[in-house]
Design a protein around this nucleic acid. Structure first.
Lengths: 461, 461
DNA sequence: ACATTTGTTGGTCTACATTTC
DNA sequence: CGAAATGTAGACCAACAAATG
């Protein structure tokens, strides 16, 4: 029996008690789902406390908890102990190129284009491969992890960035994002927890969400993630992995120095975490740096996408991994993709073996350096461990904004940029930033025009 | 307090009660996991009944249930109501090409090779594309779902098989398996249930296992899955989807006739299931057949891989889907792969638009027909709805075998074939079969040699 | 600083479904 | 065929933990 009458009590959601059929918790969940999906409950609505609902419906508290859990897993609501349960605002923060981006009337400084236009080597490589007589060898089912010759090229390219592993521990995948999918599926389970930087690559965040893997943001300082914070979190939570991009963290542009890498590696080893090291920006890092994976020999997965460095459209990445993951990753590749097209791997192999790859990254570093020089005419670097030739910059925002509001107003001014909330696992009101892509404008002039608009906009607002 | 003393009671697993720390259920689960992973509990060991363990450990029955559930989700054990709980034998049934398959001393009739060797058109297409001046347009980040021109080709190719949808409902993916991953990730949740044929494509089974999606096998007859059985299962269970391959079911080679397709579609619509239609063998089906998707316009996903029909190594598939899935699938592609290489899509587009694709499948149908003629010299078709030009055949086995035992003995005789247990969701002792690939032997002579060995082997054993 | 609000977690009980004998 | 064995599912309660004011 309900203790009180709720007739004139203002509850934000009043499910019809008569509609409840066993199993109760599922019944409640589907009523809630229905009301959210049909717009009867607006985004951000605070739902009644679980106890109150339980009382109103004359069922047990934990029955309501379970019902809410179902909706939370589906992403319909989110709950905060002590504060309450809320309807999720339907925002997708992941960053991808839309199809309709062709004839835009703004300057692109949001997504990070990889300076593909300065690069005619790839088309050249395709032509030279097409002329070869072993073409048909590239067109069958064999070598799901990559042909030995391609894995040799991958090894060589990794060595270029101070990562040295035998080809038995290397596989070819269909790009960086595909590698993340593979690793999260093959080495983790739903419900597992992975440590990430406070500000993290949004596409990794969204992927983890889809796979029900929980990300735990760890505070950092100017040098990146703080080892003592990581240690503290590991001590009280059971984490399974950690995702890092130490060459040039996206979005903060921080390059982690060798000392910090070693400290972080120590904590990783101490708690037996699986390290997922994303080294897509390795070609922008100082030459002598070793990957963190180097110091975590038992539990690393190292991902070297070539999307930013060599070619974005070919969809190839190289991954290297510790011995104990060989079987699971092999099986994961079978199950996720079967294999990556050997033709695509051959193209990248050609670039690496002819030395074209080296020329491409040399040129990209030069152009990016030039773009950063332009940036410094308008804004300054914040601290010395920011990567000086990063493709993007991270600028503190001094006024408080809503994500959508800020990005929208910027667009009406003629520039596309991203607000820091896209990069947060939990959208809190920490200090705000914007990420500015320097490589997406057509040329330095367009970049300068964009930065000029931005500077004026920030001064006015 | 335990009711009995278990000192001299023969329990197959006796965890140390003193090692239990709260939370109890997790503690029990990790003790069990430890003992399985370290070999103290052999595969197929029957664990003590949950009640007995609970009594022995002096904890509640459902605490043990929960502990076992954790291990079951991890795939360490499996439970059957009424029979007991058992340690999972560590068998991977998925079928993939191993790297070491080059110089084998047996005739390959296990995996299904797609007659790639009769096909030099693909290399030709690559050469012609390499010569084109728009090559660089294929090499960037744009058009994550596929360039409009490529989706037009996909539409055209689908129309060839009586599937007609606008290009807004079509996307290019990185092959059939990649499409399954995409669909299971984007449209389903862990714990969801999907109906499948009693005998199902093993790589779909393994993928579902990784993603914690439960497959429910439905009985069939000579025409494929029985509509009344599907209806009965849907009435008592809440299913979310169904996976079918009606053009030529793998492994049974059954082609579903139009009448059965409509009956199945009716049940699918009645219960609002999501249809996953795998039409990789459409090019082997009679010309006038409509896909089941045609009759499920609100809830279909139709997958047209070109791995068997046009080229296995290029890693491209076309998918078409109902309007309501457009957003989720688009977002899923972003998160899983970002995009599929436009170069690869261009190659297939070229094949389709030049008419080479049509020639390839014509030739493959002829060769497959010839191979089936050879097969009929040794064995007969079982019933009229088996696809007469299937790349593989499904042969009843009259003696009872263990999967590994049978395949191993066949190998020592010089032939590689697959036992029906690989295709079962639950390995029961139903009537047994073997799947024989007709297209993997080099030529008809080698096939004949293989069939000869097989026939002798089956007669002797 | 502490009591209050609110969500989370673990353990228990009971009814039920499936398989076996 | 029906009783016994065995696993499953739903609901409830109590202790706990995090946020709030």
């Amino acid at each position: 029996m309900p203790v009180n009458s709720f007739e004139d009590y203002p509850m934000s959601w009043k499910p019809d008690k008569k509609q409840l059929v066993p199993p109760l918790y599922r019944s409640v969940a589907s009523l809630l789902e229905y009301d959210i999906l049909n717009g009867f409950l607006a985004p951000n609505t605070k739902l009644p406390p679980q106890r109150e609902l339980a009382d109103y419906l004359d069922i047990n508290l934990s029955t309501v908890t379970r019902a809410f859990k179902i909706c939370e897993v589906k992403g319909l609501i989110y709950a905060v102990t002590g504060r309450g349960t809320f309807v999720t605002p339907n925002i997708k923060n992941a960053i991808f190129m839309a199809d309709s981006d062709e004839n835009k009337n703004y300057i692109e400084m949001g997504i990070i284009k990889p300076l593909d236009s300065i690069n005619s080597f790839v088309a050249q490589a395709i032509k030279s491969i097409a002329a070869k007589d072993y073409l048909e060898n590239l067109l069958d089912y064999r070598h799901p992890l990559g042909m030995p010759y391609h894995r040799m090229a991958a090894k060589k390219w990794m060595q270029r960035f101070n990562m040295d592993v035998p080809i038995e521990n290397i596989a070819i995948t269909s790009g960086g994002q595909n590698s993340f999918s593979l690793i999260l599926m093959a080495l983790f389970h739903p419900g597992d927890k992975i440590a990430v930087d406070m500000y993290t690559y949004p596409n990794f965040i969204e992927l983890a969400k889809i796979l029900n893997i929980q990300l735990i943001p760890i505070e950092g300082d100017e040098l990146g993630m703080k080892p003592e914070r990581l240690d503290a979190v590991c001590r009280t939570n059971s984490l399974q992995g950690i995702y890092l991009s130490p060459s040039c963290n996206n979005p903060t542009a921080v390059t982690m120095n060798m000392n910090r890498r070693k400290e972080i590696a120590e904590v990783i080893n101490k708690y037996g975490l699986i390290l997922i090291e994303d080294d897509v920006y390795s070609f922008l890092a100082p030459n002598g740096y070793f990957p963190i994976s180097h110091f975590v020999p038992e539990k690393f997965v190292y991902i070297l996408s070539i999307a930013k460095s060599l070619s974005s459209g070919i969809r190839v990445a190289f991954i290297a991994y510790a011995n104990q993951f060989v079987e699971k990753i092999t099986y994961g590749i079978f199950n996720l993709n079967v294999k990556t097209s050997a033709l695509n791997a051959e193209i990248i192999t050609e670039l690496i073996n002819t030395g074209a790859a080296e020329q491409i990254i040399k040129k990209k570093r030069e152009v990016s350096q030039e773009r950063n020089r332009v940036y410094q005419k308008y804004f300054q670097f914040e601290h010395p461990s920011e990567n000086p030739i990063s493709f993007f910059r991270w600028l503190p925002l001094h006024k408080e904004w809503q994500l959508n509001q800020f990005e929208h107003v910027a667009l009406t001014r003629g520039i596309h940029v991203y607000h820091s909330h896209r990069f947060l696992v939990k959208k809190d009101e920490t200090p705000q930033f914007i990420r500015i892509s320097l490589t997406s404008p057509k040329d330095s002039d367009e970049l300068e025009k964009g930065l000029c608009i931005l500077k004026r906009f920030l001064l006015e607002s």
